[in-house]
């Protein structure tokens, strides 16, 4: 078996998409790991009404947990200089006015950039919507950080999403353990592959046809 990037390395690659001065909202799971690798000057937003917070509190430092400051997932975080608190209406105006970049996880992404990431079943109560739909529609840029295939080895980049949609035609860039793929007007553009992988091998694990970008290269961190 060829080596794939581990979750932290996917997060590290996704983090390179953010620059000093960007405002970012990170989804739960893999995307939240990006916080560890993001360059200085990136300001985090949390949809429960917080901008510019510091690192999350680690499991072994509960005494540091600042009772009145949690992120949207309820995780404790440390206040940072210049932090702002506000209500949820203001928070979702930040999201819907296209001022933020978001990094989200996904169950499936379609050829057109449709995103399914809130419910892995057919029952509407089998998942939670939260603020994911708002982020997917409103963000300036939607970056997906995920594994390329399911645990069973099936492609997560598909012709049409089977799972309930989060939003239509919203994804800009997909970063996986095998590749970096841009959702472009002409189709899915394969820009980077994991070290040791070929475009053909990535294609074999991807349902829609990939267009190999000029200057295809190995993923660099």
């Amino acid at each position: 078996m060829k080596q794939r990037l581990d979750r932290n390395t996917i997060a590290m690659r996704a983090a390179t998409e953010l620059k000093d001065g960007d405002y970012a909202n990170l989804g739960r799971g893999l995307p939240s790991l990006c916080a560890l690798y993001i360059p200085e000057g990136v300001i985090f937003q949390s949809e429960n009404g917080l901008l510019g917070y510091g690192p999350l509190v680690m499991e072994d430092e509960i005494e540091k947990a600042e009772l009145y400051y949690v992120d949207a997932g309820g995780r404790f975080l440390t206040p940072a200089p210049g932090m702002a608190v506000f209500d949820v209406v203001t928070s979702f105006v930040m999201i819907s006015s296209g001022r933020l970049i978001t990094i989200l996880g996904a169950l499936e992404v379609s050829e057109k950039g449709d995103l399914a990431n809130w419910n892995a079943g057919t029952d509407a109560l089998g998942g939670t919507i939260g603020g994911g739909m708002d982020l997917a529609v409103g963000a300036k840029r939607v970056i997906i950080a995920m594994e390329h295939t399911t645990k069973e080895g099936k492609p997560k980049i598909v012709n049409e999403c089977i799972y309930p949609l989060t939003a239509k035609e919203c994804v800009d860039l997909i970063i996986t353990d095998l590749a970096v793929i841009e959702v472009a007007p002409q189709g899915l553009l394969l820009r980077e592959v994991a070290p040791g992988w070929t475009a053909e091998e990535v294609q074999a694990l991807t349902e829609p046809k990939l267009i190999v970008a000029e200057g295809l290269k190995e993923i660099e961190l």
């Binding site: 949809e47 949820v88 209406v89 928070s91 979702f92 999201i95 819907s96 509407a124 109560l125 919507i129 939260g130 603020g131 994911g132 739909m133 708002d134 409103g138």
Partner: peptide, 12 residues
């Protein structure tokens, strides 16, 4: 009866 919505839609 459960009416699902999103955080932003509920706020608006």
């Amino acid at each position: 009866e459960v009416e699902l919505t999103s955080h932003g839609v509920l706020a608006s």
